[in-house]
Simulated scan of single mutants.
Amino acid sequence: MTSLHGLFVPLITPFTADGTLATEALQRHAHAVLDAGASGLVALGTTAEPSALTAAERAQVLDICAAVCAERGAALIACAGGNATADSIRAIAALPYPVTAVLAVVPYYVRPSEEGVIAHFTAVAAASPAPVLVYDVPYRTARPLSGPTLVRLAETPNIAGFKHAVGGIGASTVELMARAGTRTTVLCGDDRFASALLALGAHGAILAAANLAPAAYAALVDAWRTGDLARGRALGHQLDAVGAAVFAEPNPTVIKAALAARGEIPSAAVRLPLLPASGESAEAALAACAALRPEPSRRAEA
């Protein structure tokens, strides 16, 4: 098991009003989420709109995130790979090392068999210079994985664990945690189910909504990880409104609109095929964040 515990923020990619990469804003935002208690950063996740970035822009984003993490002594998870095994291996090899871990998605669109998924990740992990996290997100990949497959992946050399984002807590999740949760790293990837998965023993989280409320999400992870159950429940209930508001429109449109409204990035711009979030969605997200109330640690009171 790796030491990938805590909150990891999958950073947005801020743009200027004319649509160019806002590098200074990205650097400030990266430092801000670490200042708020995040354990590390995730570069070029779905929230970063990587498919809409040029190769040069993706390299800039990685360089900025790597520099911030090196300066702060924070973990960097870099996203690489896709639905072709050979291309995934080449993409991982091209990453600027060292990175703490590589986040590689379950092959999408082609819908391989579960045996094919295992073969894919066995090859990717064998070729990767860094530990691999399996990004299991079936509502994007159309390839759900069973509990036995997840357990087999957990036992594969150089696979450090999972970003588990399966849209709920079902039998496969319970089986993963019961059979492999003590020897692999499981990071929650569904914002609205983070508290529930942490209660089952997940080691941390990769949460898009943490771009807006990093301190509260860091506190949520810490509460469950340290056994402060009452605080964890209370924070989970509060943060559900944030998660619901953030995903009212396609990610990361609401996050960017809210950050721009707070003056933390220069614009709410996204790139096609995404469209900017509505004002109503941005206001709902801002209101949910403003309503957060820190929960005192019950352990500290004891």
Rank of each mutant, 00 (worst) to 15 (best):
I89F: 02
A80Y: 09
A277G: 05
T13R: 06
P96G: 04
C289D: 05
L198P: 02
S297Y: 08
G263Q: 12
L207F: 13
V270H: 01
A230I: 00
A32M: 14
D228G: 04
T16H: 11
D191N: 12
T173Q: 10
A288S: 12
P214S: 13
A288E: 10
L220Q: 00
E57I: 13
R58I: 15
L220T: 01
V134H: 07
I255P: 00
G170I: 12
S267I: 13
L272E: 14
L34P: 04
I92L: 02
T141V: 12
A284P: 02
P14Y: 01
L187W: 08
T149A: 12
V33M: 12
S146T: 15
L53D: 11
E283K: 14
E114K: 02
A123N: 00
T54K: 07
P112Q: 08
A178Y: 14
L229R: 10
R58T: 11
C79F: 02
R152H: 09
D87L: 15
V137W: 06
L272R: 10
I12P: 00
T54F: 12
E71I: 03
A142K: 15
A55M: 15
T47S: 09
H237I: 13
G116K: 01
A25P: 04
A25W: 02
L286W: 07
V254C: 08
P129T: 08
T149Q: 07
G161A: 06
T226I: 01
S113H: 05
A165L: 11
A218F: 03
G19V: 05
P107N: 01
S88G: 06
I12H: 09
V221K: 03
V242S: 04
L41H: 07
C65F: 09
R140N: 15
E155C: 06
P96Y: 02
A248P: 04
T184D: 14
S128I: 01
A119D: 10
I159W: 00
A43W: 04
N158P: 00
A205I: 09
P98D: 01
G170S: 05
M177I: 15
T149D: 11
S146Y: 12
V151G: 05
L272I: 12
P50E: 15
A180C: 13
A154G: 06
D190I: 13
V110P: 06
A17S: 14
G236N: 04
A285I: 09
Y109H: 15
L239V: 11
V105I: 15
S3C: 10
S195H: 10
T46H: 07
L21A: 05
E155R: 13
